[in-house]
Amino acid sequence: MADLLQFLVSGITVGAVYALLALGFTIIFNASDVVNFAQGEFVMLGGMITVFALAAGLPLGLAALIAIVLTAGIGVLLNKLAIEPARGAPVVSLIIITIGASIFIQGVAQIVFDKQIHRYPGISGDAPLRFAGATILPQSLWVIFGATAVFVALWLFFTRTLTGRAVLATANNRLAAALVGINTRYIMTLSFGLSAAIGALAGLLITPITLTSYDVGIPLALKGFAAAMLGGLGNPFGALVGGLLLGVLEALTAGYISSQYKDAVAFIVIIGVLFVMPQGLFGRKSTERV
């Protein structure tokens, strides 16, 4: 029982990060129909910028803020320089562009930062808490808290604010949104910025647990992508469920079956689900129009 609890806690912690990644995929996909494989780099940047800001002697709060703002800016640049000019390109080209962006950002990071593995202490220290026989890092709670806060804030944003509704309208039908006067280019910029900021937040929260280096982005992006597809691309609720499900399944596999194959779970599950539900768990079913 204590084992199970332990696995669930670590699963939910990792799952929260996957959910934030999946959310980032979803926000950008909704605004632009692009699956942004560079999403993992935002997580890397969030962690790395914080590391180097701390090393420069800044307090954690300020370092985190700088990391989030800078990463959001990089997200906006990515949109302006690589995505907007490629409007209307086929899926294959868009995949190559965002993977290219991912490699490019890694290339810059290894020069600007370094190739070492880094970490910094958790927000509330690194002394584990004991609960019902399971040990929990206080940072895990921060990760879960952070993810919850993001999802609640986003839900309020989408349902209560005019801009949020404009984002939803754009996701639903870009042409119609443009026709009623929504500036869809602005929505795209906003979505990239928001998505990058969410990625950075995930990165700076998880770094004390999983460590970071310039090349952590791609594996994270793949997991986040799988989580987003699992939930159904384009659905924020699906991103949450897909992320958590993936995290928990991984932790249970590592605990009960084989830690070597824990990374396989994501892809076995995603292939299995797509066989049965080609649009993911909560994806929109599309009718062919001819």
């Binding site: 290219g100 490699i103 290339g107």
Partner: peptide
């Protein structure tokens, strides 16, 4: 860096 830039 160069590879990424070429791809884009």
């Amino acid at each position: 860096l160069l590879l990424g830039a070429v791809m884009i």
